[in-house]
């Protein structure tokens, strides 16, 4: 465990918990894409298949349980909670699942480290995580403004990705045999997707005005 990895995990944790707590407190999910949240729930469910079979550390197991619990709780709030679900704008959240999920299944089947069920599912989760933010970014573009909630959420997710890249660089130079092309490339693609968003985020922050994304 290095400082980049720990900081990355903590910003990742913060992004999910901030979202969950805010939805719980303000009883609204306005501006949040249910599709992105469902894709993240699938990401955690397919990546952590080893949770009960391979013990890595107490930290690792607890974090996995928190990510699974919080991501499914967010989906439950948006779909089932009698007040929160009314604030979900289904008509704006139109990104099609198939355009994201099918290419990820296809890629995971042909490009993986080992052709076993667990390994293919793990690889699928990496590809899916890389693009799962797309429905949220499309929703942001469509509504053309983001409140603090959505802004902080996407900012924390972006920070998590950037810190993970630093973690990989650190581990590459400090650990023997630490080479993992699949998570690295998927992770870089995911980080690049945030780049565009960050430009506008910082721009609006610098000018101290509400963020407006271009059409």
């Amino acid at each position: 465990m290095n400082i980049f990895r720990l900081a990355g995990d903590m910003t990742h944790l913060a992004s999910v918990l901030v979202l969950l707590l805010k939805i719980h407190t303000i009883k609204s999910c306005a501006g949040i894409s249910l599709k992105t949240q469902e894709l993240y729930a699938i990401v955690f469910a397919t990546r952590y298949l080893d949770i009960f079979t391979d013990f890595i550390s107490l930290y690792n197991t607890i974090m996995k349980l928190i990510f699974l619990g919080s991501s499914f709780s967010i989906v439950w709030y948006i779909r089932q909670h009698k007040i929160v679900r009314r604030s979900y704008d289904k008509d704006q959240d139109t990104f099609r699942y198939v355009f994201i999920v099918l290419p990820c299944i296809f890629l995971a089947l042909i490009i993986n480290e080992k052709f076993t069920f667990k390994e293919v599912m793990w690889t699928f989760s990496l590809y899916l995580e890389a693009v799962a933010i797309l429905p949220q970014l499309v929703l942001l573009q469509r509504t053309r403004n983001i409140d603090n909630l959505t802004g902080q959420y996407v900012f924390l997710l972006g920070a998590y990705r950037a810190l993970y890249i630093l973690n990989w660089i650190y581990r590459y130079f400090t650990e023997p045999h630490y080479i993992h092309w699949i998570p690295w490339i998927a992770g870089i693609v995911q980080t690049l997707l945030y780049g565009d968003f960050f430009y506008y985020y910082f721009h609006s922050w610098k000018n101290n005005k509400k963020l407006q994304l271009p059409a």
Binding site: S57, N167, R171, Y178, P183
Partner: peptide
């Protein structure tokens, strides 16, 4: 092990 050295990541 080489194959699993990154599986401790979340």
């Amino acid at each position: 092990e080489k194959q699993d050295s990154g599986k401790d990541e979340l």
